[in-house]
């Protein structure tokens, strides 16, 4: 490292349930490269200074969804954020609104259960046989749901969501977007099932439309729009079922 190299201080939240009663902050001053992302700095600290630092990462190209953390108080994918946009001191903490396993690692099982709950798979009254070949889907039909299928399950939206903060059981933006994605898919016949789920407690009607989820989404999924649409569909479906008790399916 040359003497002229820029340095930054990383103030990192540390917590090891084997040793600590409560989270603490630990500061590391390190030389940084102008091309680095936030994740590169964490990996430098891990490799060169403190091997006990725990964080998740893998693809380092913003698609595996592992490395979400709070950077200067905002939920971010650390492999995507250029270090150059931050000041001399950078605060890194685990994603907000999740239980912490250790250091920068949060507990994700709750999200996995929420995801499963919305039935994020193609539902059909009668399964197609493979011999029938691929279904037709026009580019316009694909466009209907494509944006909501881009969710990488990074869970930044849960950290940003004020409802999740107060009501941890709220099923949350990503799960709703993914459930809604299947309901919008021309190949799916499960919208009524999911509307039923979305009329349940702690789902779409808990959303307060803060829109924070869409603002932090690193993949521009716009989960707030999905929640909005899902809410409307759940209501219409319910109203239709009052008029036509056996109707409501598409």
């Amino acid at each position: 490292m040359s003497d002229g190299q820029q340095k930054k201080t990383f103030v990192i939240t540390r917590f090891d349930p084997d040793r600590d009663d409560a989270p603490r902050k630990q500061a590391y001053e390190i030389p940084v490269h102008p091309d680095w992302k936030v994740l590169d700095a964490l990996n430098f600290i891990k490799d060169e200074i403190d091997a006990t630092l725990s964080h998740r990462w893998s693809c380092r190209m913003a698609v595996c969804g592992s490395c979400g953390m709070m950077v200067d108080g905002e939920p971010r994918l650390t492999c995507k954020e250029a270090l150059s946009q931050y000041g001399d001191t950078v605060d890194v903490a685990p994603l907000a609104n999740f239980p912490v396993v250790r250091d920068l690692v949060i507990e994700a099982d709750g999200f996995m259960e929420k995801l499963t709950h919305v039935k994020p798979w193609i539902i059909r009254a009668k399964e197609l046989a493979v011999e029938e070949g691929p279904m037709r889907q026009s580019p316009a039909e694909l466009e209907e749901f494509k944006q909501f299928s881009m969710c990488i399950n990074c869970m930044l939206c849960y950290s940003a969501c004020p409802v999740v903060a107060n009501e941890p059981e709220f099923i949350g933006p990503a799960a709703i977007a993914l459930g809604h994605r299947y309901s919008l898919d021309s190949r799916d016949e499960g919208a009524a099932d999911r509307n039923e789920i979305f009329r349940g407690e702690g789902t779409v009607f808990s959303c307060s439309f803060a829109n924070e989820c869409s603002e932090v989404c690193p993949k521009h999924v716009d989960p707030a729009a999905a929640v909005n649409q899902a809410k409307l569909n759940a209501v219409i479906d319910w109203a239709t079922s009052l008029v036509l008790p056996r109707g409501g399916d598409k």
Binding site: W121, I122, S138, L142, R187
Partner: peptide
């Protein structure tokens, strides 16, 4: 056969104008 199954399971394959 395998890519068709993925299609049946919801993979958002890009499409031609005719939906294939």
């Amino acid at each position: 056969r395998e890519l068709t199954l993925l299609e049946h399971w919801g993979c958002p394959w890009s499409r031609n104008e005719d939906g294939t």
